Amino acid sequence: MLKLKLFHNDMSVCAQKVRMVLAYKNLEWESVHLNLRAGDQFKPEFKQVNPKGMVPVLQHNGATITESTAIIEYLDEVFPDPALMPANPLERAIVRNWMIRLDASLHENIAVISFCVAFRHQMLERYADQDALEGFLNNIPDPARASNMREFLLNGLDSPRLRQSLYVYNKLLQDMDHALSHGGWLAGAHLSLADFSLLPYLERLQQLQMAEWWHEYPGIDAWLLRMTETAGYRQGMLDWHNHSYIQLMGQKGQEAWPTVKALIDDL
């Protein structure tokens, strides 16, 4: 068996869920870490790996697999022990529903929240020169992503997209609480890909000082505690925590919370 190679970033939510699955399954892998703020994903050598300029990317047995949901399903099929997909077909469908929801909406909206609240400050400091900022934006292959990034950077908490993203996550928290009240895990009685997929997004909200958001849903805090006790979390997320990013998110999140809470209360 050829070694697994993962192109990833320490604080990328998509990379985090892949690393957790790798850790949970006790798989050895070669790390190729990219600094996304410095634009490593746009360098020619990585664009040959993934023309979209996005992480994570998994290489295994001569194949290159992109998109984090496809990667973790591949890992669970190729390395089935311990299994992270239920045997029951209905529960498998529930797992896939959570992951489809992530790909269709939740991932995009956590980016909106993260950039509007915190990351824009880091980006604007790094690219203080207008030409440098335009150069970074022009390197983004997808014009829609580039346009969205420009809007988040310029408008921050005043971005019209922020309210929409908060609505999406408000509904998620309600649905997670309902699901967890019926089994302890998102897809029933056992830990699954759904749990590892959602965890990075909830931890991101914690890091942005938004945990008060779900104070009426104690099942979510209980689930978070169980997740952080897994080897998958410790090796796939905790060991890769970038404390300068976490400090930035904590500081800017605390400053932004009164404005964000007012937007949530008005939903």
Rank of each mutant, 00 (worst) to 15 (best):
W240P: 02
A70M: 08
I65W: 05
N148C: 03
K171P: 00
A132W: 01
L84R: 01
V112R: 07
G53W: 04
R92F: 04
L153R: 07
V13L: 12
S159N: 07
S114T: 13
L22Q: 10
N35D: 15
L198C: 15
T69M: 03
A83S: 15
D103A: 09
A144E: 13
S197M: 05
L172P: 04
I110M: 06
A93Q: 10
A93R: 10
Q247M: 09
D265T: 05
Q254V: 00
M85D: 00
L2Q: 14
R204D: 03
L90I: 15
L205A: 13
I140Q: 04
Q164L: 12
S197G: 15
Y24A: 13
I94Q: 14
H178S: 12
L162R: 10
C14N: 14
E30K: 12
E151W: 00
M249G: 03
D10G: 02
M123H: 09
I110G: 03
Y233Q: 05
E125P: 02
W257H: 08
E255D: 13
I72G: 03
S147D: 14
F46E: 02
M149V: 01
F7P: 06
P44G: 02
L193D: 03
N242M: 07
V18Y: 02
R19G: 08
V55W: 05
T259W: 02
L4R: 12
L58R: 09
L202N: 04
R163Y: 08
A118L: 05
A194I: 11
S192Q: 06
G39W: 07
G156I: 01
D195V: 12
E255K: 15
Q41L: 00
L34Y: 06
E134L: 11
E229N: 11
L22Y: 07
K17F: 09
L208N: 06
R161G: 01
M249P: 02
A111R: 05
V112C: 06
F7N: 09
S68P: 01
I100P: 00
R101G: 09
W213G: 06
L133N: 04
Q207T: 05
R120C: 03
M227E: 05
M227P: 04
L202H: 08
L166F: 04
S147E: 10
M210F: 13
Y167A: 11
N9Y: 07
H190W: 00
P218V: 07
D81I: 14
N148P: 00
D10W: 02
Q174K: 12
L193E: 01
T64W: 09
